[in-house]
Design a protein around this nucleic acid. Structure first.
Lengths: 141, 141
DNA sequence: CCTTGCTCCTCTAGTCGCTAGAGATTGTAC
DNA sequence: GTACAATCTCTAGCGACTAGAGGAGCAAGG
């Protein structure tokens, strides 16, 4: 009667490949799901959102550890708010930094395309844009 | 009389580790530099910008192959403008997509922080934000 | 001149985040 | 009841580094 689904269905619904889902389970991003009699995983509806979140966060370049932290924030709503705050703040500044640099790159690629339309890219400055210090927020790591 | 520098100096000036510079050389992102009599690499000033560019681009999540393409754009200014245009266009839409999703994440983390300041994160919706389809630009890959 | 110590060299192996494949089992559809 | 698809576990590979071994070069002090 439950609307639990097999791993293949979850995969199709989220765009995350089956082996990747198993991998996420093995590194603790996804919880160990219940199993059928024949030892097959099946998942409740909340797994879909969790998995989509993981996928987007990965595409945006967050590492598994950071994602685990973000997930923990929503898993344990009543937990120490200070820890959550610190984690969130760290991620926020990282996010802002990325947006800034992506926008610089966006502007320059756009400029390149404009000049390209005029038939030349002879003064291409892609390198310049992202190499200059102004754009560097220097977040260590 | 030249102001060529050793790999260690280049490393310090760019924040890219020595082994990583050698790795970039091995995969063709950095050109093979000239060597001293004792077989040590040394680099001209243009290497600094190129390396900084590579570093930023990598931090922003572009893969080595994409970076190579972008670098080729500026390396061969007189080459087929059509190819350049196509490559640039592809990267531009990828860049835009990332900015959009990062902004969605930024908004939500910011909202979380605001609520956190009020002493609760009980309705934390980090997962919701990045799992919903609206934010998904579905760029295949 | 020689030793101390740093940088550099090459090479191999390990890490992270997947991804692909082998080989066995189960479940479903004709 | 047999074919075929989906699942299982396990191992191995890949991309992009990163760390370490083992050796050579060079500059500075005694």
């Amino acid at each position: 009667m439950s609307k639990e689904v097999a791993i293949g269905v979850l995969s199709r619904e989220t765009g995350v490949k089956v082996p990747t889902i198993r991998y996420y389970e093995s590194v603790g991003l996804m919880p160990q799901p219940s199993r059928t009699e024949a030892n097959r995983r099946h998942y409740g509806p909340e797994a879909v959102n969790r998995l989509r979140f993981i996928r987007h966060a990965r595409e945006l370049g967050f590492e598994v550890d950071a994602i685990r932290q973000l997930l923990d924030l929503s898993d344990q709503p009543e937990r120490s708010c200070k820890a959550a705050d610190a984690i969130a703040r760290r991620h926020l500044s990282e996010i802002k930094s990325r947006i800034t640099r992506l926008r610089a790159l966006e502007r320059e690629v756009q400029r390149m395309l404009a000049e390209c339309a005029c038939g030349r890219i002879s003064d291409c400055r892609v390198i310049d844009v992202l190499s200059h210090h102004e754009h560097c927020l220097h977040h260590g790591k």
